[in-house]
Amino acid sequence: MSRAELSAAGLYHRLMVYTLFFILLLPLLGTLLYSLSTDWSATILPSGMTFKWYVELWGDPRFLAAFGHSLLICVGALLLSAVLILPLLFVVHYHFPRLDGLMNILILLPFAVPPVVSSVGLLQLYSSGPLAMTGTPWILIGCYFTVALPFMYRAITNNLQAINLPDLMDAAHMLGASTWKAAFLVVLPNLRKGLMVSLFLSFSFLFGEFVFANLLVGTRYETLQVYLNNMRNSSGHFTSALVISYFLFVLILTWAANHLNKDKS
């Protein structure tokens, strides 16, 4: 194949990728334009542009409270997951590697039951008695903890297999480090990438979770997705501003994760 043919083929491939990328972005661009328009009904383009809907959204105390509730629940669930899953993974991969297959099955059990079914069971279990947590953030933190476990387990497991944990621990022991000192000072820094990927991936998923939040707490501890559902009958411009704000927050968070996860020279 000649150089001209290779160049033409490369141009065709780039054109197809850019076209697909534009098609995927088109609904988002339409939502952004609608959130900035004063009125857009019978014309091809909006009749005017304004930031009124964003000012109204970010000035709404109810929205700010829902945003804070979502942040608090997601961060709490992920901290709990990290504190429990890291020691568990270390023990399994270093002391009991044969249990990894069983752990892979157990860790996926939360996805075997649909969220609606799980929510009904949790409502019956925690709506009364000594562990009455329905309508509180604690029940959501517990639910989100189980949802985040598969993401965190798989990402950190892959990282542990890549660093060859037994050899790394043997080297640390030869240099005089105890098992737990080696785990904290040698193994944990090498898990930074896997941990960061699992945390931000889980956060992006949990931040948009609706079923558990709506059924288990609803408006008693309103999260961002419940707020969006409750505001669906308000102005379309307002809800579009809410969707764009949510997307921008996740986008900034993803950019920050990629930036922090880069190898330092």
Rank of each mutant, 00 (worst) to 15 (best):
V17H: 05
F21R: 05
F22V: 03
F22G: 07
F22S: 13
F22T: 08
I23G: 12
L25W: 12
L28R: 05
L33W: 14
Y34V: 00
Y34T: 01
D39L: 14
E56P: 02
E56M: 09
R62Q: 15
H69L: 12
L71C: 09
L72T: 06
V75D: 04
A77F: 12
L80Y: 02
L88M: 11
V92H: 03
L99Y: 05
G101L: 11
N104Q: 10
L108K: 02
P110Q: 07
A112R: 00
P114Q: 01
V116K: 04
S119E: 08
V120H: 04
V120T: 14
L125H: 10
L131N: 07
L131P: 01
A132W: 09
T134G: 03
I139P: 05
L140V: 09
F145E: 00
V147F: 03
L149C: 06
M152V: 06
Y153G: 01
I163Y: 02
L168E: 14
M174F: 06
G176P: 10
A177M: 12
T179D: 10
T179W: 02
K181R: 10
L185N: 11
L191I: 12
L191S: 07
G194T: 08
M196D: 10
E209F: 00
F210K: 02
F210A: 06
F212E: 01
L216Q: 07
G218V: 02
R220L: 08
Y221E: 04
L224E: 10
N229M: 15
N233D: 15
S235Y: 09
G236H: 14
I244V: 15
L251I: 14
T254C: 09
H259P: 03
L260N: 14
N261I: 07
S265I: 07
